[in-house]
Computed example of a mutant assay.
Amino acid sequence: MTENDFLPIQYDNLPAEGKVAWKAPSNIALVKYWGKKANQIPANPSVSFTLDACATTTTIFFSRKEDDSQFSFDLVFEGEPKEDFKPKIQTFLERIEIYLPFLKSYHLKIETSNSFPHSSGIASSASGMAALALCLMDMEKMMNPEMDSDFFNRKASFLARLGSGSACRSIEGDLIQWGEHQPIVDSSNLYGIKYPFKVNTVFKNFHDTILLVHKGQKQVSSSGGHNLMHNHPYAERRFEQAHEHLDSLKAIFSEGNLERFIEVVESEALTLHAMMMTSMPYFILMKPDTLQIINKIWDYRKKTKTPICFTLDAGANVHLLYPESVKEKAIQFIQDELVAHCENGHYICDRIGTGARKIG
């Protein structure tokens, strides 16, 4: 599909007012998307687990207005007006107007909240933009009731990407691939797709316990971090590596090879942070406790042969990944060894989810 496939038909029915609400999960990339081109096009393909508990819930109350010359919206985040979020929403609406031309005909009251700390490396922009895109698509579906669910999800992923690249991986579950990759026939830079190859059952009930090392604002936004890949001395080799790892995962997922899975996932996490440390300007997003946790995971895995591993987003928090079969051991390990490195002892127990869902 191309961008033109998402241009709308003529709307026959513009409702006077209404309400839509969606809950969209975050996701955790296994092969990382890092670096982008114009219009939120990824510099390399990625694949992610869709999460479940870490999610954004968004409700839009919409009402027709007479002046359709500009966008009109209010934004309430976790019960409070959030003026500093509004420019990002304004930019998003400007990007998607061609695909949803009814937007200026309505005043939108957007109410949104997260189940996890904002801007701390748990992809809040992914779940937030996915939930917003789904609400707006729900409005379009009211005007085009014949729209089928496959097109609805694909266009929602396409629109979400224009707000936050990784948001396109938060529409569906449980394993989502995004970005053109020649061996994956339907892969696209425009939207995420369900991973099309065989996946062993061991990966179907995976857990992700997020160790909250630092809940505060990150040193650099994800968008700023992506821009540092332009003219990065190691960028091209990194992009090649992402394709190679995606190729490796086909057999790993099919065979249920946890040892190789761990190697790829941890390598990807460390590569992401290595690229930040070798950019200009350079950043160290990990904290001392991040490194303590990583070393304890390595020691524990070596001593017990328990297949747990870590991954990281662009922040200090650690995602501890493990299969259902070792859940009790992993939780005990967290409580005995890792919780001491979490801010106020806080961590979030999450697992692979099935994607976003409509509320009400």
Rank of each mutant, 00 (worst) to 15 (best):
N153M: 12
A356W: 10
L291A: 06
N4C: 07
L312W: 11
A53S: 14
T306N: 11
E324S: 08
A340C: 11
H230E: 14
E244W: 11
S157F: 03
K37H: 11
H245D: 15
S254I: 10
Q241W: 13
L228D: 03
I308Y: 09
C168E: 06
L272G: 02
I210C: 00
T290K: 02
S254F: 08
M142Q: 13
L312D: 07
D148G: 02
S105F: 03
P281G: 01
I348N: 02
R161S: 12
P307G: 06
G353T: 06
L338W: 02
R64P: 05
M142H: 13
Y300I: 04
A38E: 12
I334G: 01
S149Q: 15
L14N: 09
F151Q: 00
T311C: 03
M286T: 10
K82F: 15
I352M: 08
S124I: 09
F92I: 03
S115A: 07
T50D: 08
P101M: 03
A16C: 08
S279R: 07
R95Q: 09
V76M: 08
P45A: 09
D150W: 12
G79R: 08
F77N: 14
D186F: 06
A29V: 09
H245P: 05
H230C: 10
D289I: 00
Q292V: 08
W178F: 06
V318R: 07
T50H: 09
R95C: 04
F283H: 02
A21F: 00
P81A: 09
K23G: 04
K250R: 04
K287I: 03
M147K: 15
F158L: 03
M129D: 07
H243E: 12
K37Q: 12
Q10H: 14
F102N: 13
K329I: 10
E66P: 01
A156T: 12
S127L: 04
P183R: 08
L75C: 13
M275W: 09
E343Q: 06
R154Q: 15
E324T: 01
S113L: 13
F158T: 01
F197G: 09
G256V: 15
S188W: 13
C135A: 05
N205F: 07
V318K: 04
A167Y: 00
N295Y: 12
E343T: 00
D313H: 04
A38Q: 11
H273N: 00
H243S: 05
V264G: 02
I294L: 12
E328Y: 04
S119H: 15
S125M: 11
Q177E: 14
G360R: 07
